[in-house]
Design a binder for these strands. Structure first.
Length: 488
RNA sequence: GGCGCUAUCGUCAAGUGGUUAAGACACCGCCCUUUCACGGCGGGUUCGUGGGUUCAAAUCCCGCUAGCGUCACCA
């Protein structure tokens, strides 16, 4: 059987949209699941759109997502070069061949704005002015050095049908096809031409790309036929959509928030979470498994799990999945992965980073939530009397003062400031007081954190803060509470 | 507008003529609980619409509607 070869062919824009990433992923997964090759090819035939270092950017992003090309600009391979601008001469040769065979023609029209923008799109855009120029006219134009493009000569009648794995047979009337440009006046091929030549030359067996190419596929198919080349298998993927606040759904874009792989990484999602989530956006394994390593994805992937309808990117589910990954990590792994999101920590907290991670990893959905969550450890929020009043735990201001005062005494006597000791002392205090656990814990935790919601309870915070800071915060709070009681 | 693609809970989705129409996220409730989480239990909500075909339709066919795509010397 022929070797399975797929490719990812982005244009170098310096931006990796989630939709593109998913296309690359599926192409990669399919190739790897079939023990085939995955090729990275850069489609940079538009000189105006050139972005410096974009190729490196794409390669870095794929590497971060663990999508590893077998062949590519910097990966080598038997079909090099893998950058289209470096293959220019090649396309020219094939274009000329088409002209000779009568399947293409030279067009000397320069910017026919009027025709191209007319509402009467009978000819699909271009009015085919040069389609039937006489040899003499062509010769003369050439002699004058007039610039020209080479256009594909579409059949005027009949229809073209191609098979798509997801959509079945798709038929489009040839009359719908315009005489598209194959070779631009600067000698560069257009996407629609280079793509066909390269896919054939690079022996691509399966073309996996977005639905936006369905309509242009018949033109490509015709090209394959003109050359007498074997057709690859087509798989057109449904787009990734986004849901705006007003509920409208459209192709995922900036107005939906982060839309690139890198945006997501910067927000603090693990690369493997992004790949895992994106893999499931439009593909299902036919089992209830949702957490997949790249190895499992490769093992389980199959084309018939692909869905042909658009999928909406759901940040909720991404968050959930991210949380699942965090919970599965050891404290050390979490601490390491989250490192740059901790920000500037003081000496005490730096030393307790791993412990802090154990508290954080079940409470955070992405790393970027960390700073806000741990800020109170570095800096005590302003006093807020209201926080000490809690009905459920039966505490008010007076009660809080009554609870905090003895607690300070007890804690002052603690030499060995460890979780175990602190837990023992506080538990003993609760038992002796005859009060409910919550009644004691609530005011202490508020006094220590100044926050209603904290990562961890009283004992954890005492330990995190350390002896000195804890005692200082408690007595400050006590004073503030007493003042507040007096004032009321 | 022409052409093309798509249509099952709010979202991801299973489902391929006979099912109580899975599961997950989100949401709501309850339990656990020293906050918040974690964990456990339970709940509601879905086949766009109108016609067929059939004993039987979410599944097959046709129309309609809606969404998306495409109509470049962009990819």
């Amino acid at each position: 059987m022929k070797k399975i070869r797929t490719r990812f062919a982005p244009s170098p824009t310096g931006y990796m949209h989630i939709g593109n990433l998913r296309t690359a992923l599926y192409a990669y997964l399919f190739a790897k699941s079939q023990h085939g090759d995955f090729i990275l090819r850069i489609e940079d035939t538009d000189r105006a759109r050139y972005v410096p270092d974009a190729v490196e950017f794409i390669e870095r992003t794929l590497a971060a997502a663990k999508i590893i090309p077998d062949e590519g600009p910097h990966h080598g391979g038997n079909f090099a070069p893998y950058v289209q601008s470096e293959r220019m001469e090649l396309y020219k040769k094939y274009a000329e061949e088409l002209v000779e065979k009568g399947y293409a023609y030279r067009c000397f029209c320069v910017n026919h704005e009027e025709e191209n923008n007319s509402d009467d799109k009978k000819f699909g855009g271009y009015n085919r002015h040069c389609r039937n120029l006489s040899d003499a006219e062509i010769k003369e134009n050439l002699a004058q050095g007039k610039p020209y493009v080479i256009r594909q000569k579409m059949p005027l009648t009949g229809e073209t049908t191609f098979f798509d794995v997801l959509h079945g047979n798709i038929t489009i009337a040839n009359s719908e096809l315009e005489d598209q440009v194959l070779l631009k006046s600067d000698g560069m091929p257009t996407y629609n031409f280079a793509n066909v030549i390269d896919d054939h030359l690079m022996e691509i067996s399966h073309i996996i790309r977005g639905t936006e190419f369905i309509t242009s596929t018949p033109k490509h198919v015709l090209l394959y036929q003109f050359f007498g080349w074997e057709l690859p298998t087509f798989i057109h993927l449904a787009p990734v959509m986004g849901k705006a606040e007003d509920g409208t759904i459209s192709k995922l874009s900036k107005r939906h928030g982060a839309t690139s792989f890198n945006d997501l990484v910067e927000m603090g999602y693990l690369p493997e979470v992004i790949t895992n989530y994106v893999a499931l956006l439009g593909w299902n394994p036919k089992t209830n498994q949702e957490i997949f390593s790249m190895e499992e994805l490769i093992e389980k992937f199959s084309l018939d799990g692909l869905s042909k309808s658009p999928a909406v990117f759901d940040y909720n589910k991404l968050d959930w999945m991210s949380g699942e990954y965090f919970k599965a990590m050891t404290d050390e792994e979490f601490a390491r992965a989250a490192d740059k999101f901790f920000g500037e920590l003081n000496e005490n907290l730096s030393a307790k980073k791993v412990y802090l991670s154990s508290l954080l990893k079940t409470r955070v959905t992405k790393f970027s939530e960390i700073p806000a969550m741990i800020k109170f450890l570095m800096e005590m929020p302003p006093f807020d009397a209201e926080l000490f009043i809690n009905k459920r735990n039966k505490v008010n201001l007076e009660k809080s003062a009554e609870i905090i005062e003895p607690a300070i005494k007890i804690l002052e006597g603690v030499e060995n400031w460890t979780l175990e000791t602190l837990n023992e002392k506080i538990s003993a205090y609760i038992e002796n007081s005859g009060l409910k656990t919550g009644t004691i814990m609530w005011p202490l935790r508020i006094a220590l954190s100044g926050q209603k919601v904290t990562p961890g309870g009283t004992v954890e915070i005492l330990y995190l803060l350390g002896r000195e800071t804890s005692l200082k915060r408690l007595s400050t709070a006590l004073k503030d509470i007493q003042a507040a009681v007096k004032a009321s």
